[in-house]
Write a protein that binds this DNA or RNA. Structure first.
Length: 236
DNA sequence: CATGATCGGTTCTCACGACA
DNA sequence: TGTCGTGAGAACCGATCATG
């Protein structure tokens, strides 16, 4: 672990205020040459309309512009970050289908940037972006700083998603009994209650009882929802 | 006493096939 | 194409028993 990482890891994890936490992240980003940084997270629930949270230190005018134009729906870095963990450097080619967004960003001083997606066992998908108005990011610089940027992404994701989850019902810990977990696993495999009863050598009613118990714990409307939620929470 | 496991009866929902 | 009947599966309510 580099001195950079070692010096900041413990101090970051002890911070319990989201604003202060992100402020520290921006300081770290600036220390490695990026004046701007942004972090966005998409919560796994509700599946029909996943909640998105964003924090950044971009110019206020650019934040307003981005929001007004709903650029998030066409931002190629967001699309990339939601499906890939591969680092991405901003380029003309990247924004070929979002020229207006690209030109607006540059006009607000966001000229060179680097983004990386990340995800965790809770099903939260995050994306970290660092950017600057100055010189382009060279291959040499990227090679030198990539480990630090990857670390910064992970630390930001762990810390900030924790704050986001604190204020949602999804963030509340759910504990399933071993029997409940076992039955949900078979349910996820498409087995009916009767089939699971045969497999586990218990009555179908008993299987249903445990399924109902998981519905209550997961606040799920039905068995299908319970299985999906349990899977996304990493309980299976 | 709290928790987990087991079981029974009943009702509801929904997919599917038959039929006009 | 729309309606209706049927059956499988799901959901709900209740209870007892074992264990730490």
């Amino acid at each position: 672990m580099s001195p950079f990482v070692e010096e900041n890891l413990h101090s970051l994890l002890s911070i319990h205020d989201p604003r202060l936490y992100f402020s520290k992240i921006t300081q770290l980003a600036q220390a490695i040459g990026f004046e701007y940084c942004a972090y966005g997270a998409r919560m796994p629930f509700p599946l029909s309309a996943p909640r998105t949270e964003m924090v950044n230190n971009y110019p206020a005018a650019w934040q307003q512009c981005y929001s007004e134009h709903q650029y998030i729906t066409q931002d190629p870095t967001v699309a990339h970050g939601s499906r890939s963990m591969v680092p991405l450097v901003w380029s003309d080619e990247l924004f070929a289908d979002a020229r207006e967004l690209w030109e607006d960003a540059r006009s607000y001083g966001l000229r060179n940037g680097w983004a990386q997606g990340c995800r965790d066992g809770n099903g939260v998908v995050g994306m970290m972006t660092v950017a600057r108005s100055g010189e382009p990011i060279t291959a040499v610089e990227l090679g030198e700083k990539e480990p630090l940027l990857a670390y910064l992404t992970q630390v930001t994701h762990v810390g900030m998603s924790r704050f986001f989850l604190e204020h949602s019902s999804y963030g509340q810990e759910v504990k399933l009994t071993p029997r409940e977990t076992e039955i949900l696993r078979w349910t996820a495999e498409g087995k009916t209650s009767a089939e699971i009863g045969d497999i586990l050598n218990i009555a179908e009613r008993t299987v249903n009882f445990h399924v109902n118990s998981t519905l209550a714990k997961l606040n799920a409307a039905n068995k299908t929802s319970a299985v999906v939620q349990a899977a996304l929470r990493g309980l299976l």
